[in-house]
Design a protein around this nucleic acid. Structure first.
Lengths: 211, 211
DNA sequence: TCCTGTGAATTAGTTCACAGCG
DNA sequence: CGCTGTGAACTAATTCACAGGA
């Protein structure tokens, strides 16, 4: 589990393979070929084998991969063998959707706190979680041993918030704010920008060969 | 606006440059260098110039780019010069967040209908929009002249729904369901998978050089 | 025979570096 | 001079193609 530098595209595909492996497992299949995985994941069998080969050789020639064993290995590789404590910054609707999203907790991402700057929201409850004030950010990070922050705020306050998060000890951030965050070495940021996704679609529509 | 094949990564960056151009415009700046754009967008000046060069030469040597003019060109290139009629399939919390998300309508993506299969949701209103039954899918696509569908459903029904959407005339789909959709030639699908984003973070955490 | 694992070949994407125009 | 525009060089990612083990 120590190869130097793995492409982000490879890591994303591994996460996708894992999803389908679990599906196969639920169906009681105990073996799967690179071809079958590739078809489900929308890639090629060579790509699947190459992706896996960076981490070892898990298959049996002539047979394929053991569904259960490969699942375990992928979870190990992806760091999903444990739970992660997540803080959500910003209590808008998207944050609400994330808190309730079953896909996160199923994978071990546990939302332990939500903060917002709106005094009207502070103190209200979302299920188990009571929304706290953004002033408590640092205190919460320490108290709840937060490792991952999800930033769901407007662009404006995002950089200041991430500075405070990093200062308090957070080293991984999933950023939904439409800004490029600047963080010190050793802190990982992944950006999700829903408007950009739609704009790549409108690009495709605009440049279609009109029949 | 006719170059053969432009990388997805380039299109995404163009959308990001546009965001910052608009910010600069709001600030009253009327000229910007590739270097300044690159810094905001988290890339390099050479990358910015290369991305733009695929579509023409918009800058002035020694000076940079005209903020307003480049904004217009980028909107043209991205196909943002018009409005798009969007149907949301699935009325969960994420769908609710998308309906209300200002970033979409600001860019011309107008949600014209929402469908769900839950009878308890059908007939309830989200702002202007009354949720309709999934049975009406085809009728709605025609009636509302839907061009883009956003699929926000569980994995299970997603393929069947996309088949119906395509049959009814939809040619662009933003898919949040964790499955690889199979669609005919000429239909564009972009996938967003929030769990995968978090998993790339957990990969990074797990493989960090522990100091 | 079937299907993996993997170097080699290819293709795609990024960065360099500099000529040339304002 | 300053900064763009762009071939050329380089680096990264994907695909090919086949040797070899089950």
């Amino acid at each position: 589990m120590l190869p130097r530098k793995i492409a982000d595209s490879t890591v994303r595909r591994l996460a996708i393979y894992l999803r389908f492996l679990e599906e196969f497992e639920d169906q009681g299949r105990d073996t799967v070929s690179s071809e079958a995985l590739a078809h489900r994941a929308g890639t090629t069998s060579a790509q699947v084998r190459k992706d896996l080969s960076f981490f070892g050789s898990f298959g049996k020639r002539g047979l394929g991969y053991d569904v259960h064993a490969l699942g375990i290995r992928l979870r190990e590789i992806l760091g999903l063998g444990r739970r992660y404590r997540v803080l959500i910054v910003g209590a808008g609707r998207l944050a609400g959707a994330l808190v309730q999203y079953a896909g996160f907790s199923a994978r071990g991402f546990e939302v332990v706190a939500v903060v917002d700057r709106d005094p009207d929201k502070i103190g209200t409850a979302w299920g188990e979680i009571v929304i706290e004030g953004v002033a408590q950010l640092e205190e919460i990070v320490v108290r709840e041993q937060v490792e991952i922050a999800i930033l769901v705020t407007p662009a404006d306050p995002a950089q200041g918030l991430v500075d405070r998060l990093v200062q308090a000890g957070v080293t991984a951030v999933l950023n939904f704010a439409p800004v490029q965050l600047h963080v010190p070495e050793g802190v990982d940021v992944k950006n999700v920008n829903l408007a950009v996704e739609l704009e790549t679609l409108s690009y495709a529509l605009a440049h279609r060969v009109h029949a």
